[in-house]
């Protein structure tokens, strides 16, 4: 087994989940200029709902096809997360639309803490094991081992990202979203119901987050009420790395961050002579965040479009 190839593969798997979550951050930022720090918790809620549905189905219909099971669990998680995001925007952020920027930001952190604690009350403090409903098979690819779960993660993420890009760039809804993100005032003059577009944006981001939650829980086989926190921060880092507000940037940033983390964790032990182990994996995301913010705050693909007068 080629270790480097294996780290690249693991990085891509992790990175595609980061990318899904980063898209939610970047879409909301693009349209409202708001960093929705509660987004990571939406990922966690998605994982928890799906887990609850799968557990219930397993106990009632143990013979059910795993694909049907995951489809039902996924649908439930997506619907719950979309409604959750709708109400978060409607009740917490919309009243603060014209408030100083710090107010919605602090509110977002508040919602994040609130959701974590609600999840803790409902699902408890213990790590929950995700049942293996798929038979895990391992294949070899370019000298690396890839499991069926990893193939599933990459495929689902790629399809969703492609779907989102198609919606944003080639549909009427997508045009309205892009117009709203440029100027809410002018978008309104086009007859766009700006509040509706903002709600839809939150809900699309939450749908992606729900799927990301399921994928990440499937990847690590555990779920926990605090799992969204670190994941959210990393996805935010990915969005900043790619250029916040830029969809392509979020995908690129997510994949890059996954690779950096995975390769970094794979070699940090050798590089520091065993002083730092692979559990320092989380350090990389934040080193990246600091470096980007210092040297290129607009990220890789983020640039100001000059509008000539």
């Amino acid at each position: 087994m080629d270790i480097f190839a294996q780290q690249v593969l693991n990085g891509l798997v992790l990175g595609s989940v980061y990318a899904l979550v980063a898209l939610g951050y970047t879409m909301v930022y693009g349209i409202l200029g708001l960093i929705n720090f509660a987004h990571g918790e939406v990922v966690m809620i998605g994982a928890m709902i799906a887990l609850a549905v799968v557990s219930a189905l397993l106990s009632v219909f143990p013979e059910m096809s795993p694909f049907l099971m995951i489809a039902l669990a996924g649908t439930a998680a997506i619907l719950v997360c979309m409604s959750l995001a709708f109400f978060i925007e409607r009740l917490a952020y919309r009243p603060l639309r014209n408030a100083p920027r710090l107010a919605p930001l602090i509110t977002a952190i508040g919602i994040s803490i609130l959701l974590q604690n609600i999840a803790m009350i409902i699902w408890g403090r213990k790590y929950k094991t995700v049942p293996q409903i798929f038979p895990t098979e391992t294949f070899e690819l370019f000298g690396a081992n890839i499991t069926s779960v990893q193939i599933f993660i990459i495929t689902v993420s790629a399809l969703l990202m492609a779907g989102l890009l198609v919606i944003v760039h080639f549909t009427k809804l997508g045009r309205a979203m892009r117009a709203t993100s440029e100027s809410q005032r002018v978008a309104g003059l086009m007859g766009i119901n700006v509040n509706k577009i903002i709600s839809v944006t939150f809900m699309i981001g939450a749908g992606l987050a729900a799927v990301a939650g399921i994928l990440i829980a499937g990847n690590y086989s555990v779920a926990h009420y605090s799992m969204g926190f670190m994941l959210g921060l990393k996805a935010f880092t990915a969005a900043v790395l790619g250029g916040i507000g830029n969809l392509g940037g979020a995908v690129l940033g997510g994949l890059l961050l996954g690779l950096i983390e995975s390769i970094g964790a794979g070699y940090i032990g050798d590089l520091t002579g065993g002083f730092l182990g692979s559990h320092y994996q989380d350090v990389f995301a934040f080193v990246v965040l600091i470096v980007v913010l210092v040297f290129r705050p607009t990220g890789i693909m983020g640039e100001r479009v000059s509008e000539r007068a």
């Binding site: 009427k172 045009r175 309205a176 892009r178 117009a179 440029e182 100027s183 005032r185 002018v186 978008a187 003059l189 086009m190 007859g191 766009i192 479009v305 509008e307 007068a309």
Partner: peptide, 26 residues
């Protein structure tokens, strides 16, 4: 009612055709 706002309000990142289609949103 349709307004051409002061400063034109053209969507700088949308193409000319997309801008026109925005006008026909409803």
């Amino acid at each position: 009612i349709s307004m051409v706002p002061e400063g034109r309000g053209v969507f700088g990142r949308l193409t000319v055709e997309e801008n026109l289609l925005m006008g026909a949103y409803l």
